[in-house]
Design a protein around this nucleic acid. Structure first.
Length: 276
DNA sequence: ACCCAGGGTAACT
DNA sequence: AGTTACCATGGG
């Protein structure tokens, strides 16, 4: 294997830690030196920063555009954050983890991952996905690729029993089957009107609005999607009872990721609730 | 023993 | 059309 280190881009305000471990991706592992290892686009890579420079170790020069896309490097997050900060709670959320960027991950992997995420916690989601890859993926370096739709479509729900994903097993199989057959068309999800895209994904048993929105946001770069999970429900109830302000709406999904991470990780976020 | 986790489905009013 | 039990599993 050609273990080449490729320069991806230069960006001061990108934190690999905040971005790769804020609950949008589940397969990255932090190394002791602060770099991250994992498998994406069928390659086992290591990502690290040197100063402001971002590097991916283990790819070819021609893959550079894919990885720039993965980190959404051509979007101006600093300008976005300035706009978002008009809201005081948003300002706190951004200050807590300013280096977050919303990734553009692989579509199929994202869909299956967020099916697994439902009524589940992040630690366990990671474990189930890792076992899914080991069991049904292909060996890539010293790790495993995410299984392709064709492979999962050839299985039954019972075949997934070792994953301990419980009631989600049949959802995974239904998704893989409909995607592999073309009954659910992933290509349209990038550009279709958002309601149509959501409905396309919701043809799959086990995908409702929330999982559809997470899939579209993290897997298809649909930044207008605002997935509402239990944490965002709390945020909305206390800080956006009348809906999101207009300046958050066009990229609501990006705002959502700052809010989600802050609400979930920082105990201070809802400390005002203790005053009762 | 009870409650919760990046929810969805089916079966109720 | 709006609620609610139930769905597997593991951790607090």
């Amino acid at each position: 294997m050609n273990n080449k280190i490729v320069f991806i881009g230069e960006l001061e305000h990108l934190s690999l830690h905040d971005t790769l471990d804020c609950g949008q991706a589940f397969r990255w592992k932090e190394n002791s030196d602060g770099s991250f290892s994992g498998v994406a686009f069928n390659k086992n890579v290591r990502i690290f920063k040197d100063g402001h420079n971002i590097y991916v170790d283990g790819i070819e020069e021609c893959d550079k555009a894919v990885w720039r896309d993965y980190f959404d490097l051509d979007r101006d997050y600093e300008a976005l954050k300035e706009i978002f900060k008009q809201n005081p709670f948003m300002e706190k959320a951004i200050s807590f983890a300013p280096g977050i960027r919303v990734l553009k991950q692989e579509g199929f992997e994202t869909i299956i991952s967020f099916i697994i995420s439902q009524n589940n916690n992040i630690k366990r989601i990671k474990g189930i996905i890792e076992n899914l890859c080991i069991q049904f993926g292909e060996k890539v370096g010293d790790s495993y690729s995410f299984p392709i739709a064709e492979k999962l479509a050839s299985l039954t729900a019972d075949d997934l029993a070792p994953l301990k994903a419980g009631f989600r097993n049949r959802y995974i199989i239904d998704a893989a089957t409909k995607i592999h057959s073309g009954e659910v068309n992933l290509n349209m999800l990038y550009t279709a009107p958002i309601e149509e895209a959501r409905n396309e994904l919701m043809k799959i048993v086990g995908i409702g609005r929330k999982v559809a929105d997470c899939s579209l946001l993290f897997g298809f770069n649909r930044v207008e999607c605002y997935p509402v999970d239990v944490w965002i429900k709390r945020v909305d109830a206390h800080f956006f009872p009348d809906g999101l302000p207009e300046y958050l709406v066009p990229e609501a999904g990006i705002a959502q990721q700052y809010l989600f991470h802050y609400a979930r990780v920082c105990p201070e976020a809802f400390s005002f609730l203790d005053k009762e």
